[in-house]
Design a protein around this nucleic acid. Structure first.
Length: 236
DNA sequence: ATCCTGGAAC
DNA sequence: GTTCCGGGAT
C-alpha cells in the first residue's frame, strides 16, 4: 500500500524554499504555491492505493472527472481485475464494460492494455521495477506508449513512481496566462520547464503544487465564469 | 479541427 | 438542458 509521504508538510516545504536560490520566477511560483496551500490546505494526492492503481487512474482520468474514474476502478476491484495480467488477459468488450463509467471506454480499453503490455514485458509487471529506471529514460518510454501523452506520463511519474516530474494541465496554462506570466505560444514542455527550472526538484512540492492548481482551477480559474474577485491567487 | 463517452455540476 | 472534465490520437 502506498502510504502518505512522510515529512511532506509545511515545515519541510518551507525549508525547501529557504535552501533554494531565488530567481524572480522562483519567487512568483512560491508565492503562488503558498497562497494555494494556505487557502486549500495540503491535498495529499494521489487518492490512490498501490502504484499500479495510481497509474490506471492516471490513464482513466483523461478528460474525465475523478468521480467517474473511481467507479471504473471500483469495478476493476470488485471483479478482481486490478492487476496487469488480469487486464491484459481480459477480452476487450469485457474490460470496456468495467471501464464504462469513466467514459471513452473503448479508447481507454486500448490505452490501458498498451500500458499494461509494456509494464509486463519490460518491467515484469512491477511498478517498483519501473521506478528503478532513470527519470528521463522512463519518461521517454512512457511517452512511446499509444494513449499516454505528456500529462498522463508525468502523472504516472510523479504520483505512481514518485519521481519529481512536474505535471502541467489546462489549469496551469490558464492560471499563468491570466497572471501574464506566459502567452499562448507556450507548449507543454515549455511550461513544465518553467516550473522545473525555477523550483527545487522535489516530489513533495510537485505533488502538492499540481494538486493545488487543480483545486484552484476547479473552484476559481474556470474557463467560462472565472471567479477572479474571490480567487486566493488573484494579482499574484 | 474532430472524435471518443459517461456522468456530475451548474 | 448545456457544459465540462485531473487528454490524446488522428
Amino acid at each position: 500500500m502506498k502510504q502518505q509521504q512522510k515529512g511532506c508538510d509545511r515545515a519541510y516545504l518551507r525549508k525547501l524554499e529557504g535552501l533554494h536560490p531565488g530567481t524572480r520566477h522562483t519567487e512568483y511560483l512560491f508565492s503562488l504555491f503558498w497562497l494555494l496551500y494556505d487557502s486549500f490546505g495540503p491535498q495529499y494526492w494521489w487518492p490512490g492505493q498501490t502504484p499500479f492503481e495510481v497509474a490506471v487512474g492516471a490513464i482513466l482520468t483523461q478528460n474525465t472527472t475523478w468521480k467517474n474514474v473511481e467507479k471504473a476502478i471500483a469495478n476493476l476491484k470488485s471483479h478482481r481485475c486490478l492487476s496487469p495480467f488480469a487486464i491484459l488477459e481480459m477480452a476487450d468488450y469485457e474490460l470496456a464494460e468495467l471501464l464504462r463509467p469513466a467514459g471513452y471506454y473503448n479508447i481507454k480499453t486500448g490505452r490501458l492494455k498498451n500500458f499494461v503490455k509494456v509494464l509486463l514485458e519490460d518491467f515484469g509487471g512491477d511498478m517498483g521495477q519501473m521506478a528503478q529506471v532513470e527519470d528521463g529514460l522512463i519518461r521517454r518510454r512512457l511517452l512511446e506508449i499509444k494513449g499516454i501523452g505528456p500529462e498522463t506520463a508525468d502523472s504516472i511519474m510523479l504520483y505512481a513512481l514518485e519521481k519529481p516530474s512536474f505535471v502541467v494541465d489546462a489549469y496551469t496554462f490558464r492560471i499563468l496566462q491570466r497572471h501574464d506570466m506566459i502567452d499562448s505560444s507556450w507548449d507543454y514542455e515549455m511550461l513544465r520547464g518553467f516550473f522545473m527550472d525555477n523550483l527545487p526538484i522535489d516530489v513533495c512540492l510537485f505533488n502538492e503544487f499540481h494538486a493545488l492548481i487543480v483545486m484552484a482551477g476547479k473552484s476559481f480559474c474556470k474557463a467560462r465564469k472565472p471567479k477572479c474577485d474571490q480567487c486566493p491567487i488573484r494579482a499574484t
